[in-house]
């Protein structure tokens, strides 16, 4: 009944003179902006492309970096290496989430009993945020196996992954901590007033709200981990970059590096777009900063 009614009202409505003029003006403006955007993009890309192609060294660069046959022949090896990067990334990401959440929770605990834990958490975060990732990879990747700890694997893959986990967790822990602290204290009060314990309030009231808020920055860090997983190539782990290096060494043609670069972008760009979309949907403006 009410549906019919609204349907009739909608049919009766005709845009007024003023509204038709506005719509017309908006349509013209949209068209004009589209034409300008397309024209300026073409001009820019054409100019840049022309400058590169007409440069004196282009011939040589094209042969060493953009050799189609070399790209095709090295592709399977590099792709196989990339599969290792993907696996490293997934395993590391799970470990990073667990470790960083633990560190973040420890750092927000109060009371004297938690003091040593808090101190440990703070020291860990400070140290590992201060160290360049490459340095951590070198130190652990070469130093770790040399320790010869019983029960610890000696593989560079393990120690390289550990370096990634330790470095990233220090950053991600700070993301989680900021999320936890952004939940208003009145939420904790409400939880406690219902008789929930400290832990229950954290688990059922604070963390679910914090989690939502940190998803955009976490996705951002995941994008970053995707590419940084390539750094363990310096330990000789046969990932995409190392495979490209091997292919390159055959004939000093650098095309495999470009292949690896394109493949990495194929991983990170969709992820970055997804992050962007999600963040915009949630009205979050912090994550787009690096994109």
């Amino acid at each position: 009944m009410s549906e019919q009614l609204t349907g009739q009202v909608a049919e009766d409505w005709r845009p007024s003179e003023v509204q038709r003029e506005r719509d017309e003006w908006r349509r013209r403006r949209t068209l004009r902006s589209a034409v300008i955007a397309a024209g300026s993009t073409l001009l820019l890309l054409g100019g840049l492309g022309g400058a590169v192609v007409s440069s004196p060294g282009w011939q040589r660069v094209q042969e060493t970096y953009f050799d189609w046959d070399k790209a095709v022949s090295s592709f399977p090896a590099v792709l196989e290496g990339l599969w290792l990067n993907i696996r490293v990334m997934i395993v590391c990401w799970i470990l990073i989430l667990v470790l960083s959440l633990t560190v973040a929770i420890v750092r927000t605990l109060r009371g004297p009993v938690a003091f040593p834990l808090r101190l440990l958490g703070t020291a860990y975060v400070d140290v590992f945020r201060g160290l360049p990732l490459l340095l951590v990879i070198f130190l652990l990747g070469f130093g770790g196996p040399a320790l010869g700890l019983s029960g610890m694997p000696r593989s560079p893959l393990f120690w390289g992954g550990l370096a990634l986990v330790l470095s990233y967790s220090a950053y991600v822990a700070e993301v989680f901590r900021a999320g936890i602290e952004s939940v208003h204290p009145s939420q904790r009060l409400a939880g406690r007033s219902l008789g929930l314990s400290y832990g229950q309030t954290l688990r059922h009231v604070v963390l679910p709200q914090a989690w939502r808020r940190v998803i955009p920055p976490l996705m951002n860090d995941l994008v970053s981990l995707q590419k940084d997983s390539g750094l363990i190539a310096v330990l000789g782990v046969s990932d995409a970059i190392r495979k490209a290096q091997i292919e390159t060494a055959l004939d000093f043609n650098y095309t495999p590096y470009v292949v690896a670069g394109v493949l990495f972008c194929c991983l990170t760009i969709p992820m970055a777009r997804l992050t962007d979309r999600y963040a915009r949907k949630k009205g979050y403006h912090g994550a787009g900063g690096l994109l």
Partner: peptide
């Protein structure tokens, strides 16, 4: 304290409902 609080009901000025 948790046990005591579970036997009282508290309502706040700003509701403090759980948004999630």
């Amino acid at each position: 304290g948790d046990e005591v609080r579970s036997r009282m009901g508290m309502v706040f000025q700003a509701y403090n409902l759980f948004p999630h």
